[in-house]
Design a protein around this nucleic acid. Structure first.
Lengths: 202, 202
DNA sequence: TTATCAAGTGAGAGACCTCTTACATCGAGT
DNA sequence: ACTCGATGTAAGAGGTCTCTCACTTGATAA
């Protein structure tokens, strides 16, 4: 089988396609404009079709959230490896990976941890978000975080900074001056480094 | 005159009331759920009434954005004065003021600098946002920012961190453990201090 | 071959939103 | 006293969204 270009009555793998198309929609229009109907339109299926695979809008978003957590985690692992052996650099690279991932997909913390999704239970999502946090925590432990509590605090600080830069970038806050993705990513990493130094004494 | 409790046919000062009610709605439900109709309902006026004062939804939001910028600026000035004479402390207090203001009003950068509002021209809003940025920049200059560019970068870093903490808090990211407003506000300030140290050498 | 059933479709109910239009009310100035 | 303009209302057109329902299609397994 496999998906043919000209699809017939059946799609082939609509479930996966819905998630992928949801990412595109999020990247283009943000969470505010996200709708099941728009995703269906984008895929050229009827607006009822998605409901064969997800019982409601929040469950679709929840699946997107789980996929985002998984992909972000793998982006973070890749970035850490690219950052070399120094534990501080590896931890700081989380900011780089986060910023770039969210800028390109539109699916950041506001999607992954969206408060409105806490009402729908979704084990897959819980597993993925937990794995994501643990991955980042591991990087913090490796970078000499003095205690569990401080590791958590450090991770939260780095993520807050990265998310802040991402939001500001998305809202066009940096419009004048050095506003390239690379430039802002670098500044997010530098902020992360400053936070790491402040808490681990380097 | 003055607004009577039992209002008659006319409201008294609907324009101002719309802005106030918009803040309440934002604080309760966020930007995603914001609607002109809901604001009108909250005030007990017809859903057409707001359009006597604002030509469309975006212009109402724009006025809210301007009011938020003005109020936030005054909150920042108050916080800076409360922080005492030390310039670094005064600058770091921006993070505290930002976090507390947005948590209580729901109107943060995502409202004040909302990308979707850039299409509607609004001089009042432009003036207020500019004044806000200049106020914070002044605090950065006072704290030994080495150059204009670095002052801007430092301010952006502090705001990014504060906004990140605010978003994470709003999404319930801090649910377990020390999640009180005061505790998170303190951590936002400490992040700001770390960023200031990193860029000014204290 | 044929029955079955997962996964499509079209139509639409019901909700809500933005914004318009024609009309009602009332305070202020002459 | 009267009128007039600013500010309210009721009604509704036209849009989008979520989700449901009865029906259709076609891949698969007996």
């Amino acid at each position: 089988m496999g998906m043919s270009r000209e699809r017939g009555y059946h799609h082939g793998d609509l479930r996966a396609a819905l998630i992928t198309a949801s990412f595109e929609l999020l990247a283009e229009s943000g969470l505010r404009r996200f709708s099941v109907a728009a995703v269906a339109r984008r895929l050229g299926v009827s607006s009822a079709a998605p409901y064969r695979h997800f019982p409601d809008r929040d469950r679709l978003l929840s699946a997107v959230s789980a996929a985002a957590a998984r992909d972000l985690r793998s982006a973070i692992l890749t970035a850490a490896d690219a950052a070399g052996p120094d534990p501080s650099s590896r931890l700081a690279s989380v900011a780089d990976a986060y910023f770039r991932y969210v800028v390109s997909t539109g699916a950041g913390l506001h999607v992954i941890y969206a408060a409105e999704l806490y009402t729908v239970p979704d084990d897959a999502r819980r597993v993925e978000t937990r794995a994501l946090m643990e991955t980042v925590l591991d990087l913090a432990f490796a970078a000499d975080a003095p205690s569990y509590q401080q590791a958590v605090a450090l991770v939260e600080a780095i993520i807050a900074a990265a998310h802040g830069y991402t939001s500001l970038y998305a809202e066009g806050f940096f419009n004048r001056g050095s506003s390239s993705v690379d430039a802002i990513a670098m500044r997010a990493v530098e902020a992360a480094r400053a936070l790491i130094r402040a808490q681990t004494g380097r």
